[in-house]
């Protein structure tokens, strides 16, 4: 995935679409950001200068689906194999019914991409009707995170199979990339050098968050501002 921060207008459509697509629960008070379940969290970055040299940008942060050798930071530590990386798609998944809620993965992830169900997820009765059957709802006491809309991949693969195409060639778009009104989010196969996303990853504006930690995040950011690069990766 590549996210062009220059194009991002901070409208939050990505984050909202993600919540709607993935049955993310919400509470009456969501202002405690440290306990709010947000798969695609948007961060507020600023250049630290004074008025009128002040500048800020928004930075949407899905799960990075780290590509570090052998294991992602989180899959490495899960004691019960509840979170694993699919080596074909590269997607890091989380099996909610297997998760015992030890939160070791939350501790391991430097991107805060993982959220814990501190409460029983609850919806206003009438809003239960808008829950998607394609994504299971979670229970209290387990961890959840962005799956790059993995269910959409499965759907695309099934469709490809039925259409007689190689399922491994199936393409899809996660809800956030689809929703973005400025098309700031590009999604595709990084391993395919011809893909749009692979090209963007080599753009001179591209950078990754905390590249120095050898987590090999699969989300690239693009920004024309050096201060944003610095804030994304202090190794600059």
């Amino acid at each position: 995935m590549a996210i062009d921060l220059d194009r991002c207008t901070g409208c939050m459509a990505c984050s909202v679409a993600c919540q709607a697509e993935n049955n993310v629960s919400f509470r009456a008070d969501e202002s405690d950001k440290l306990r709010s379940i947000t798969w695609l969290e948007v961060y507020h970055l600023q250049n630290g200068k004074e008025y009128p040299d002040y500048q800020f940008t928004y930075l949407p942060r899905p799960c990075m689906h780290c590509d570090s050798p052998h294991h992602s930071p989180c899959t490495f530590v899960c004691p019960v194999n509840a979170t694993t990386r699919d080596e074909v798609s590269g997607i890091v998944n989380h099996i909610y019914p297997r998760c015992i809620g030890c939160r070791y993965c939350i501790v391991a992830c430097p991107y805060h991409a993982r959220d814990f169900n501190w409460w029983d997820p609850k919806w206003p009765k009438s809003m239960e009707s808008m829950l998607s059957p394609e994504v299971s709802t979670r229970m209290r006491g387990v961890v959840e995170k962005c799956t790059f809309c993995h269910h959409r991949l499965l759907k695309a693969r099934s469709k490809a199979y039925l259409d007689g195409i190689d399922p491994n060639e199936a393409t899809y778009v996660p809800a956030c990339a689809e929703a973005c009104p400025t098309k700031a989010i590009t999604f595709g196969n990084l391993l395919d050098p011809e893909s749009e996303v692979a090209k963007l990853s080599k753009d001179p504006r591209a950078f990754r968050i905390l590249a120095k930690l050898n987590t090999e995040p699969k989300v690239y950011y693009l920004s024309k501002h050096q201060w944003v690069h610095k804030l994304g990766d202090n190794s600059f």
Partner: peptide, 23 residues
């Protein structure tokens, strides 16, 4: 108490991930 799903605590033995220090 620490784990969110104590009922499933025994998964640690059953679904053990040999790479995890916690295992």
């Amino acid at each position: 108490l620490e784990i969110g799903q104590p009922i499933r605590g025994w998964f640690g033995y059953w679904h053990a991930n040999v790479h995890s220090m916690l295992t």
